[in-house]
Design a protein around this nucleic acid. Sequence first.
RNA 1: GGGCGACUAGCUCAGUUGGUUAGAGCGCUCCCCUCACACGGGAGAGGUCAAAGGUUCAAGUCCUUUGUCGCCCACCA
Length: 918
Amino acid sequence: MAREIAKAYEPQRIERRWAEFWVKEALFKADPSAPGPVFSMVIPPPNVTGSLHLGHMLNHTEIDILTRWHRMRGYNTLYLPGMDHAGISTQRVVVRQLAEQGIDYRKLGREEFERRVWKWKEESGGTILRQMRQIGESCDWSRERFTLSPELSKVVREVFVRLYEEGLIYRATRLVNWCPDCLTVLSDLEVVHEERLGHLWYINYPIRGTKEFLAVATTRPETMLGDTAVAVHPEDERYKHLVGKKALLPLIHREIPIIADEMVDREFGTGAVKVTPAHDPNDFELGRRHQLAEIDVMTDDAHMNAHAGEYAGMDRFEARKKIVEDLKAQGLLQKITDHTNAIGLCERSKTAVEPRISTQWFCKMKDLAAPAIEAVEEYEPGKRNRISILPDNRRTEYLNWMRNIRDWTLSRQLWWGHRIPAWYCKENQHVTVERETPSKCATCGSANLEQDPDVLDTWFSSALWPFSTMGWPEETADFKTYYPTSLLITGYDILFFWVARMIMMGLHFTGNVPFRAVYLHSLVRTGSGEKMSKSKGTGLDPVALNQQYGTDAMRFCLASMAAPGTDIVLSDDKLGSARNFANKIWNAARFVLSNISKFADMGIDTADMLSPAWGGGLSPRTHDSEQKLCDRWIYSRLWRASEQIHEALENYRFHEAAQSIYHFFWGDFCDWYLEWVKPDINPREAPTIRQTHAYQRLIAVFSASLRLLHPFMPFITEELWFQLYEFGKPKDLPYRSLALENYQVVTHEVEDQIAEEGMSLLQELIVAARNIRAELRIDTKCKVKAECLIQNPEARSLIQANLEPVLRLATLSDIHFAKTSLDPTRGVLKSTALFDLLIPYGEGIDRQAEIRRLKREIEKLTKDIQAKEDRLADPDFTRKAPEHVVNNLRATKVERQLEKEKLTAQLQQLEGSQTAGT
RNA sequence: GGGCGACUAGCUCAGUUGGUUAGAGCGCUCCCCUCACACGGGAGAGGUCAAAGGUUCAAGUCCUUUGUCGCCCACCA
């Protein structure tokens, strides 16, 4: 019974099996004591808010390609998986879910709520894990980590306490970004700015004891209820006389001082500004300078509070409307103008952030940033404790941000996250910060302690990820072997949130960089160019894509688009062409193996034919005497492809690597090599030694291709590798996954310039013949005779030596080698510098069309030759340009001239014969 | 308000250090279901590299200006 590869390539049928196999066999378990150079990466932990989107797919594909590539090259490899608890995002998701069930999370209480979130974490974390396994990520699953696990929480506490003890973490009352929807403070990074068209309201503030008014301009009239001064510039002649007087705050009739401060811009608005220290960052500073009162007029959900008098209870925007109306009614509204300004929105909820005075925990950044700047600024390849950040523009962004870094607001008013390890004694409000829950106040000894209810910014634990996952602060084997990690790949959108902070924390706590290199990849966007977003429903669903095209196709497609710098827009036709490529691989394998199976049917042992697959050796000396041009050529091309892939992957140029392997496999291997050797491997009877050898060479190239392809398309290659094994590997040898095989099995020895040039000549000849046939509209099956004029005897014997494949692939019956120049009036003639090829006319041929074609060609050549001559005539060029450039140009000019002469002669003859004939 | 990026074939994009006739995929035209693959094979059309200057022997590639689009950062009411 013949073994056969399924006729159709059905990714779904093979992928599940291998995904399970890789996990079950624990193939990717890292061993810190294993030999070899180390390559380690930690995953950018996905948020447990849901499932993986295409952006993750890109990220994970890139990581996995590099991981598999290194592993196959003998590196001691670790790809550490894990997830992020994603404080604010996850809390929002669960709060929303509860709300949908009519449950107010606050009524559940903290403990119960946390329990619900953990439950959610198990579910969505499970989904994510499943997805990662589905797409074949070669992680060490035994090392999975979670930012909120007990082990990592311990590290978080350790770090927090140390920073506190070093005076880098402190508690302070400041104006902070408050999200009225998430009900928590936010760091500056979590506030996104958006230009909005708004208004500028000009309001008259009466001056006490006069009939005068002082007009102020504001974008936020509702905050006037918290005004505690009006400020003007000290040198502003218009207002000098008012400084020191009191203004009467309209609507609530509170007296406020008129003060002078340099900060005021005389050009803007009226040159007088209302000062609301509790609701504006500038005003806050100004207020502190002038010891002004700070009146918070809002509640935590951005409604007006008791300080707002009759407006209390109103939403801030309702209050704005009402206040404007009231001012108008009282004749205090001077005018309203249009004004665009950037408003700060909460990154998560997109609610307008309210600046608010609040006591929070902060982290001083300047000292932490300094070494992190140095590590990147003074990067040199090979230099210790330095990090390369690519692409370069991201490096610049990093440095700019770091140089202007501001303190980091650490605390969050959430329930899901790392509880801040600070306790306050109820008597005196002393602060105790400790690793273990304290029993008494460190200052006064009171046992009446209460822990700070807040949690840490989720990015705090993420910042520790490269070392917290390795067992730090213990000197574990993992930590010693795999830290610093080799490389970090992540999206550029979290450069500041995450990458920068990891670098600072890594350097500070381990004295070492967390990774030696960072590659920031593009984002995947939708067809309309937006960032993919599940919440907006604009993202393509990776699960559906996998179903439709297969994981390998999706991986290959992502890789082939992953050029640094530009964002990626994925589309059906691109995925389709990647799928087509997988199909091509499948069918090439089918072809190769189906022939071998026919031998098996004859009862012949085929193990021998397949043996080169396992040995891995592809010596140019294999079957030396039998090797034909095409063999030497394909080996050389294989070598070239693997060199290109190496070069590309070293520089994170995934698209170039993908392109190299694509063109090698499809263009060289399938289109030329397979076609070329078809007759040699067509099994009619028991194979001769020569035929067995032909198979061995074919299998050698094919299996080497599978190796090159494997990091990009692990499933199909593993499946086909397995099929090879089934066909011919001695059964006493257990199956060995392709993932553990050597990546590269060809050596530099197989590079063969001569063979490549020779093959290229034959290809040109074949293409020329096909070209003429198409022009003459010769039936595709009809073999015709061609005439060839070729001066170079070596080239000529090359053609003769390969006459069979040349005739077959060009569909010719014969090639007649002419002694004298070919008469273009007898047929269609194609000329290159090396040869002329003519196929005679049949009946009724369009001579005019041929004349037009020749004229076009000649014109093109004329221009080209002229350009070259001009350049060669320039003494500056010949003097200053490198020699090889000049020589190259000379050589090609001569070639072009030769070609042109030939074509001109053809044209003349054609035109001559035409006039003579008629 | 600062900074950055993009503009190359009908579409989506490659094109590292400046150096022969600027490439790919998809689409398009023509021919072929040839016993691995029509998710295929063969042949072909299509670009003054956004515009204008400049540097250079040589510019898609470097510099300047302009235009169009996009992104990031930013406490001017």
